[in-house]
């Protein structure tokens, strides 16, 4: 392959240089700036004042930040775990072609095309005091469980999580459906003939063949969960009393509401550091595909 690639004419350099310059200016240069800003104190006017590690030290004793960090971990586990479990179960159920499967699949991944903001509002309608959730609970005789789901600090984060999983599960299902398509059906049939139960067949025959997809799904969901912003912003804005605060929403408030630009940048750097491992995982996987292709 390599030998057939041509020597590089000048116009091709231009082809590469223009997009590269746009990405440098819009992504890499700003990212470097954030690192710099995280070591400063700045309100956007005048010059940023270097303060060394002060911002990071302050983060260590900032209750709201620590709460958001804890929520973010819960979020990553809950959001990742639930959407992977649901998506995988649905993919296994809807893998074999049969009547109606197409309809089920479309219905389940339809929410994925809505924006997170739309999803958030859809669910606000469900969670309002006389919305579907409370009405269904009342109808089941569980009136005592009715709540102001989004206004209660005990439930707000989880209420948002349900909405987010509702949207994400379809995406995970699509990824797993593709993964299942590339598994070898004859192995599954053979083990069925040998008398393996459906669970054994899944656990010992199908699951090991899904390793590649698992890596991608894992990296993608963790990266997504660290980025999560829109849906929380649309449903609770991190409240009540910061109970559904995530690092991204706290960062946005610090940066754009309070104009603590240095401090907000420090939070952004923490988000970056947490995402880094998973970004690398994804890149390694991508490189492997490049080599195999």
């Amino acid at each position: 392959m390599t030998t057939t690639l041509r020597r590089v004419p000048p116009v091709v350099w231009v082809f590469l240089a223009v997009p590269a310059a746009v990405e440098l200016g819009m992504v890499f240069w700003p990212a470097l700036n954030s690192f710099y800003l995280s070591f400063t104190q700045w309100n956007g006017l005048g010059a940023a004042k270097p303060v060394g590690l002060d911002n990071f030290r302050a983060l260590g004793s900032d209750e709201i930040f620590l709460g958001a960090l804890k929520n973010n971990v819960l979020w990553a586990v809950g959001f990742g775990g639930l959407s992977v479990l649901t998506g995988l179960a649905l993919a296994v159920a809807l893998n074999r072609p049969r009547r109606g499967v197409g309809l089920y699949r479309s219905a389940i991944y339809l929410p994925m095309v809505f924006s997170l903001a739309v999803t958030g509002l859809f669910w606000r309608v469900q969670y309002q005091p006389d919305g579907t959730i409370n009405t269904v609970l009342g109808g089941l005789g569980l009136g005592g469980w009715e709540k102001q789901w989004l206004a209660d600090p005990d439930t707000a984060l989880w209420a948002v999580l349900v909405a987010a999983v509702w949207r994400q599960a379809g995406y995970v299902m699509v990824l797993y459906l593709a993964g299942l398509k590339s598994t070898d059906p004859s192995l599954d049939d053979a083990s069925a003939v040998d008398g393996a139960s459906p669970w054994q067949r899944f656990r010992f025959v199908t699951w090991p063949q899904l390793r590649g997809v698992n890596t991608v799904v894992f990296a993608v969901t963790v990266i997504d969960s660290l980025r999560t912003f829109d849906i929380v912003w649309a449903m609770t804005q991190g409240g009540p009393y910061h109970s559904s605060e995530l690092l991204s929403t706290y960062m946005f408030q610090q940066g754009f509401t309070f104009l603590n630009l240095g401090y907000a940048s420090a939070i952004a750097v923490v988000i970056f550091a947490m995402a880094l491992v998973f970004i690398i995982t994804y890149l390694v996987r991508a490189t492997k595909n490049e080599v195999e292709a």
Binding site: A31, A268, A275
Partner: peptide
């Protein structure tokens, strides 16, 4: 990799 960065690290700059 640029596309995988969390947008938060870019917002202010």
């Amino acid at each position: 990799a640029g596309n995988l960065l969390p947008p938060q690290i870019l917002l202010i700059p």
